[in-house]
């Protein structure tokens, strides 16, 4: 997966100032940085939930140019859809569909979007529910799940689309502290199994354990990246050091 020269303006506000990021197959990349540094926007630009102002995104051989002036054209929208099929997204607020049971949440997109027969989709759903440890909750409605269970179900839902890369947008920020661990465990397992992922996170300990590479962002640019030990223990940049120091204090 690659991005090149991603720029994003919100009105006149320059949020991303040219992001080049390459993620190799089976790599787990953690993006850290202050809030407002553009981490989340970058993630949302990769699957075009925000249309970048310029630059391009390439996932698994499909390259889509930012095209804010023609964002509504049919061709562009179809291309974006193809990118989204390759890049699954997890949200801070889980966003399970409350009117569907867990298993319905999981098979909705595979049957409608990928055109899988129901049986095959159910089989897939059960496999991934088992992986995230929620097989016994398959018929529950999201309202009856804890936050951690919801996020694990959302991960299973994304996996059911068998994407090439998973994008995690602060997946544990809305969770009570005692529920964070179960979600991070699932993510760590996925990382070790070689699922390609980009994770925006504030969990430094998790980044250290599960990341192949840590990316530090500030003011809409990537300031520093490298192996977790290097970036987290011995950062080259003053800004990274400041961020980590302030972060560990609080």
């Amino acid at each position: 997966m690659r991005t090149s020269g991603i720029e994003k303006y919100f009105g006149r506000n320059h949020v991303l100032r040219g992001i080049d990021l390459e993620v190799r197959r089976r790599e787990a990349v953690m993006v850290i940085g202050r809030s407002g540094s553009g981490k989340t926007t970058l993630l949302r630009c990769i699957n075009f939930l925000e249309e970048p102002t310029s630059g391009w995104v390439e996932v698994d051989g499909l390259r889509v140019e930012a095209d804010p002036l023609h964002a509504r054209s049919r061709r562009h929208r179809e291309q974006i859809r193809q990118i989204r099929l390759r890049a699954g997204m997890l949200f801070q607020e889980f966003n399970l569909f409350p009117h569907m049971s867990v298993v319905q949440n999981l098979i909705e997109a595979p049957t409608r979007v990928r055109g899988l027969p129901r049986d095959a989709a159910l089989e897939l759903a059960e496999r991934y529910l088992e992986k995230v440890g929620l097989l016994d909750k398959r018929n529950e409605y999201p309202a009856r799940l804890s936050g951690g269970q919801k996020q694990r179900a959302a991960i299973a839902r994304a996996l059911c689309m068998e994407p090439k890369v998973l994008l995690f947008d602060e997946p544990t920020s809305a969770l009570d502290p005692e529920l964070i661990g179960e979600v991070l465990n699932v993510m760590e397992d996925l990382a070790h199994e070689g699922v390609t992922m980009i994770v925006v996170t504030h969990e430094m300990h998790f980044a250290r354990e599960a990341a192949d590479r840590v990316v530090f962002m500030e003011d809409g640019v990537i300031l520093e990246q490298g192996p977790p030990e290097q970036v987290l223990n011995d950062p080259h940049r003053e800004e990274t050091r400041n961020f980590l120091r302030r972060f560990l204090q609080t």
């Binding site: 939930l49 859809r81 099929l85 997204m89 966003n95 399970l96 979007v113 689309m161």
Partner: peptide
């Protein structure tokens, strides 16, 4: 957003 991210039209 979640539905779109799953590739739904």
């Amino acid at each position: 957003e979640a539905a779109r991210a799953l590739g739904m039209r």
